[in-house]
Design a protein around this nucleic acid. Sequence first.
DNA 1: CGCGATGGTGAATCACGTG
DNA 2: TCACGTGATTCACCATCGC
Lengths: 383, 383
Amino acid sequence: MGVIETTRMRAKAAPKRTENAPADLPLSTILSGDCVEAMRSLPDNSVDMVFADPPYNLQLGGDLNRPDGSQVDAVTDHWDQFDSFKIYDDFTRDWMTEARRVLKPDGALWVIGSYHNIFRVGSILQDLGFWILNDIVWRKSNPMPNFKGTRFTNAHETLIWASQGEKSKYQFNYRAMKTLNDELQMRSDWVLPICGGGERLKHNGTKAHPTQKPESLLYRVMLATTEKGDVVLDPFFGTGTTGAVAKRLGRQWIGCEREDFYRDVAMKRIEKELPLDESALETMQSKKNAPRVAFGALVENGYIKPGTEVFDKKRKWVATVRADGSLIYGKQMGSIHGLGKDLQGAPSCNGWTFWHFEQDGPGGPEVKPIDSVRQTYLLATED
Amino acid sequence: MGVIETTRMRAKAAPKRTENAPADLPLSTILSGDCVEAMRSLPDNSVDMVFADPPYNLQLGGDLNRPDGSQVDAVTDHWDQFDSFKIYDDFTRDWMTEARRVLKPDGALWVIGSYHNIFRVGSILQDLGFWILNDIVWRKSNPMPNFKGTRFTNAHETLIWASQGEKSKYQFNYRAMKTLNDELQMRSDWVLPICGGGERLKHNGTKAHPTQKPESLLYRVMLATTEKGDVVLDPFFGTGTTGAVAKRLGRQWIGCEREDFYRDVAMKRIEKELPLDESALETMQSKKNAPRVAFGALVENGYIKPGTEVFDKKRKWVATVRADGSLIYGKQMGSIHGLGKDLQGAPSCNGWTFWHFEQDGPGGPEVKPIDSVRQTYLLATED
DNA sequence: CGCGATGGTGAATCACGTG
DNA sequence: TCACGTGATTCACCATCGC
């Protein structure tokens, strides 16, 4: 599907990720000049993530004044002026096409925008074949009020997270996000303060860049969808928030930035940044990443004896472990997963958490899921 | 600006609004058949607001099961099936063009969608010449989780509020919104629960419509951007939430709906709906222009005595008025808005209508909202 | 009547490797 | 490309029922 015919990146096995990026990548570098030209110098399929904070195409009519008469420092820099939607759309399609080429087949794109541009960006991204995974609302805890009282306070910006295609094996650190959110799934609305205070870069007393993003935003983006050592490309580098957070989190980075002044500010900023040490970078891992253990191996190795009785939480079914690691219940038999599935009449079943057994504990017999034995086995057999 | 040349509706003085709609408008009617055809029967420049909840084009894969094995009842209805983005875009452009014609020059369009369709919708709306005023995020307080742990919980939907053009004199009831939001400017992110419980329409025990919207959402939309007597058109009427809320708030409504069954359900629903009485509506109307009155001023001026007991309609909570105009309930205290909000656990609360008190009347004690005291105060202090 | 346990459900682009 | 086996995975709210 898609209006525009594209070379759809098809599903492939996720390549083994290493901390070593291709030797010809200009890591920790801010490329100068137009970002499309700059990206052309990068090889195909070479970066793990693209984070883009493109110009917003703000259409502010004249100057905006606060009630006290002071003027709002609006985004009126020359790089943000576009004569029409068409020019903005062409610009968007250009940089995004190049970003798509540089991105690995299983890499992901993040773009941030406001209602002025995000609908153009989202549509074009879909037309190019990207597959939207989530739209994320950055809900600002301290937005600028609507001084004139003519609209709702514009209190959020929108991010789009997209993979190269529907079947791509994108990276999502589910467990790390759940941990970060107090053991609840991370939602699509993030409450974060805008960039200010000491974090806001100043030059001669005024803000160095009109739309500097908070580091907390990039922190969450990278923690959620990259691994240590991954390469992050930012085509609109600005003052280098992406680079600073990447360095801190042990990710590699490449930036593109047209303005000499911003490149200067960004490089100085990133040089000052200190990387977190190894132990701090450890995040909660999903069970998906653990090596697979066959239930039969536990029986073979004596962790569970043939003849052991296993049962579900409510003891509705009590089955017996056989020497080959299969279970038997009356005349029905099967693997821990298959038998659990059949007995419940469910579409599927995780036998590791469904079946329990009794074990002697300090205060008498204890009931534990058989998964606890697997954990013990994994610890004991670690290199 | 705009890719497509359109007849831009230019700024005009807002026409004097009356409660009498053009005589040839089919008010309180659900037009049958395709919504584009149905709208063709309506005259140019005749409705004050269009609220549209079009199909989202979800593009779902196979079945989805919860961790407990139960199956998610997905939206797989034929009306949500489109073969390509191009077909969806054409569909969108068609209904929106017709809606634009029917809409008055100073009228406004509201559209709701998710990331599947909202970027297409937003782009096309801009191409047609609509001027986006806000994008509003409906943050669901109780969304469905992401059962497989593959993405962020999709916890919001997006609404776009747009005028016919940049210079249109659209309606925005700033003060009503501020009052509704505990005397803070209403923000672009609204926390509201999804439609469930007694509000969710059922047919033979199952939901009558897969995507029924909560009345609170439409309530806020209409309270913010229409006046009493305004005509609201909903091209995707479904079970008639727009009609029901319009009737309650004293707005006129016209719906379009293809499915006989939904039209039946909607008509029966709206017939049962009771309009708010004049005084309640007058109150809301007057708020827009009324000078702001602090509850504390009423206490200061003796309209309400400190120590007065105030309570919600069901008398679940009985609080006491303190000298500074704050309320106290047990150990909790706050403004009339803040305490009401906290006790209910609601995102916001209009204390003026939430809290009531007893007053001696001709036939014994009467229960009145504290807002009635504000009205008395305003009358007494007029010039 | 209150309280806890239990079960149902909502606009959802919802797994992955092996053969 | 498809079929198959393994196995990872949920939050808030409501309705019902038992005590």
